[in-house]
C-alpha cells in the first residue's frame, strides 16, 4: 500500500546523476527541465504540487508550536520584502493560472496586486509599507509556498544567515544557526572543508548578480513521511532509526524515504541578500523501486557512501539494509 500521489512520483527530483555520491559544488542555472524515467522536474523555482495545502497547514502548525522556526534579524526588513516580491513573481511564473502579480500604477513607492487563487487571496500592497500587508512579509509569503526560506545578508565578504522560515529542516536547527555565517552553519559537515566545497560555494554565492538564480540538490534518508526532522524534534524522530531496523521488509520499504532537497539560490535585487530556498521531496523506497533505473542507482549510491558521510547524514545504522532492500526488490 502506498499513499504517494502520482504527480509526486512523476515530479520527484531524483538526486543521483552518478553511480557514487560525494559532496561537490553542484550548482547549475535554475529553470532547466530535467527529464527522469518517471517524468520531469526543475522548470520552476518554486514548485506547487499535490501537497500544497497539506504542507502549508503543517508549516502553520509547526510555527504555532515553535515560533523559533521563524526569525528575522532587524536589518533584514528590506530582504524580507524583496523575498516576498521575488517569490510572488516565481509563483506567477510557475502557475500563471493560479497566481498573479501585477504592478499597480501611481504612488511614490511601487505597488502591486497579488492574487493566489489556491488560497483565495486577492490583495493590493505598497512595497515597504507593513500596514498594507496582513502579516510580516516573510511570514505571509512562506504561508503560500512549500519551500523553506533562508535569507543570507552579505557584508564584509561573508554571507550571514540572518532571516528565514525553516519548518522542514533535515537534522539541523535554524533557530540556533540564525545569525551565523554560511561557513559557520556548515562547520559540522564532514569533508566539505578540506575539499574546498563549501568555500567554493561561498565564493560563488557572493558573486551572484541581481536576479541570478541557480540551484543544487542534496539528499538524505528519512523514516516516515516526516518533513520536520529538525534537531528540535530529534527526541521524537530519533528512535525511528532504531525502530526501522526491527520492522519486516514490507514495512521497511514503506517507511524509509529517499529525501531530496532542491535548493534554489537567488540574488535578491533590492537588498542584495541571497535567498536560499529549500524544498523537500520524500519518496518511499517502495515507490522508488517501481522506477527501475532509480532503484538500481539508489542501491549503488547508498551502499557505496563512505561511512563518515553516512554517519553525518544519520543513516549509518540502516543504510546497508536500505541498499539491500532496493537490490532485492526489482519491479516486475
Amino acid at each position: 500500500m502506498t499513499s504517494t500521489a502520482p504527480d509526486l512520483v512523476a515530479g520527484f527530483p531524483f538526486p543521483f546523476p552518478n553511480a557514487t555520491y560525494r559532496y561537490s559544488t553542484n550548482v547549475e542555472p535554475a529553470r532547466g527541465v530535467v527529464t527522469t524515467p518517471a517524468g520531469q522536474w526543475g522548470d520552476a523555482v518554486v514548485d506547487v504540487d499535490a501537497e500544497y495545502h497539506r504542507e502549508l497547514d503543517e508549516r502553520a502548525a509547526i510555527l504555532e508550536q515553535d515560533p523559533s522556526r521563524y526569525a528575522v534579524l532587524p536589518h533584514m526588513d528590506v530582504a524580507c520584502w524583496d523575498a516576498m516580491l521575488c517569490l510572488m513573481r516565481e509563483l506567477a511564473l510557475a502557475r500563471p493560472g493560479s497566481f498573479d502579480l501585477e504592478p499597480v500604477a501611481g504612488g511614490a513607492r511601487p505597488s502591486y496586486r497579488w492574487r493566489n487563487r489556491l488560497l483565495d487571496i486577492d490583495h493590493t500592497f505598497v512595497l515597504g509599507d507593513p500596514a498594507t500587508l496582513p502579516a510580516e512579509p516573510l511570514a505571509w509569503i512562506t504561508s503560500q509556498v512549500q519551500e523553506d526560506v533562508v535569507l543570507l545578508d552579505q557584508r564584509d565578504g561573508t554571507l550571514f544567515g540572518d532571516a528565514g522560515v525553516v519548518t522542514f529542516a533535515a537534522d539541523w536547527s535554524f533557530g540556533f544557526d540564525v545569525g551565523m555565517s554560511f561557513l559557520e552553519i556548515h562547520g559540522p559537515v564532514p569533508r566539505i572543508h578540506p575539499e574546498g566545497v563549501i568555500t567554493r560555494a561561498h565564493e560563488f554565492l557572493k558573486g551572484l548578480q541581481p536576479g541570478e538564480t541557480y540551484r543544487r540538490t542534496n539528499w538524505t534518508l528519512t523514516i516516515g513521511r516526516r518533513l520536520d526532522v529538525s534537531t528540535e524534534r530529534y527526541p521524537e524522530w530519533g528512535p525511528d532509526r532504531a525502530m526501522v531496523r526491527t520492522v519486516d521488509d514490507d514495512a521497511f520499504g514503506r517507511l524509509v524515504h529517499l529525501r531530496t532537497e532542491v535548493q534554489h539560490l537567488v540574488r535578491l535585487p533590492e537588498s542584495g541578500a541571497v535567498m536560499f530556498l529549500i524544498r523537500s521531496y520524500l519518496l518511499p523506497l517502495a515507490d522508488l523501486a517501481r522506477v527501475e533505473p532509480w532503484r538500481a542507482r539508489a542501491a549503488d549510491v547508498i551502499a557505496e557512501l563512505p561511512e563518515d558521510m553516512a554517519d553525518y547524514k544519520g543513516i549509518a545504522t540502516y543504510r546497508h539494509r536500505a541498499a539491500a532492500w532496493l537490490r532485492d526488490h526489482p519491479h516486475h
Binding site: A5, A44, V48, Y52, H53, A94, P96, E102, R117
Partner: peptide, 22 residues
C-alpha cells in the same frame, strides 16, 4: 488552462508566461 494543484504533471513543460508588465 491552470492546472489544479492535484492535477498530474504533463509531459510537456508548462509555458512560463510573464506576468503582465513584469
Amino acid at each position: 488552462t491552470a492546472p489544479a494543484p492535484t492535477a498530474p504533471r504533463t509531459a510537456t513543460p508548462p509555458t512560463a508566461l510573464p506576468a503582465p508588465g513584469l
